[in-house]
Each structure stands twice: as structure tokens, then as C-alpha cells.
């Protein structure tokens, strides 16, 4: 019973954190282009070769 007192709040806290991360990812447009995200990992980093952006 004693262990439950902190284990359960801890479990719920983890859940809340996961929920918050999902909301954040939704808000920062991470679901806008799922196909593109899968392909973009094949690209080199922009700063290597791309022309300077104005």
C-alpha cells in the first residue's frame, strides 16, 4: 500500500508527460508531412552545402 502512494502518481505523471509531448508535437506541425519526414532523414544537413538564406 505504501508503495502505491508514490507509484500511482508517478505512473499518471508519466502519462501526463506523454500526453503533453503528443500535444506539443501536434502543435509544432510534426504531423503535417509524415511522408516527407520519412524521406528527409536521407538528406544531408542544410548548412553543409545549401546557399546562404537571405
Amino acid at each position: 500500500m505504501d508503495s502505491l502512494v508514490f507509484l500511482i502518481p508517478l505512473a499518471i505523471l508519466f502519462g501526463v508527460v506523454a500526453l503533453w509531448i503528443f500535444f506539443w508535437s501536434l502543435k509544432s506541425d510534426q504531423y503535417e508531412d509524415l511522408d516527407g519526414a520519412a524521406e528527409r532523414i536521407l538528406l544531408d544537413d542544410e548548412d553543409d552545402a545549401s546557399p546562404p538564406r537571405v
Binding site: 503535417e32 508531412d33 516527407g36 524521406e39 538528406l43 538564406r53
Partner: peptide
């Protein structure tokens, strides 16, 4: 349709004078 297309288009457009941002959305 692929990563190469994304790179070609984004770099090609970003190199144009005046263009500040070019972003491909592959899903749409």
C-alpha cells in the same frame, strides 16, 4: 516523390533572389 526531389526543389527555389523560404510537403 523522394528525398532527392525535396532537396532539388528546396535548394533550387531557395537560390532564387528574394526567396526566403521554400518547403516541400511530400504528403500533399
Amino acid at each position: 516523390h523522394c528525398a532527392d526531389c525535396i532537396r532539388k526543389i528546396e535548394r533550387g527555389l531557395a537560390a532564387l533572389p528574394g526567396v526566403t523560404h521554400a518547403r516541400v510537403n511530400l504528403s500533399t
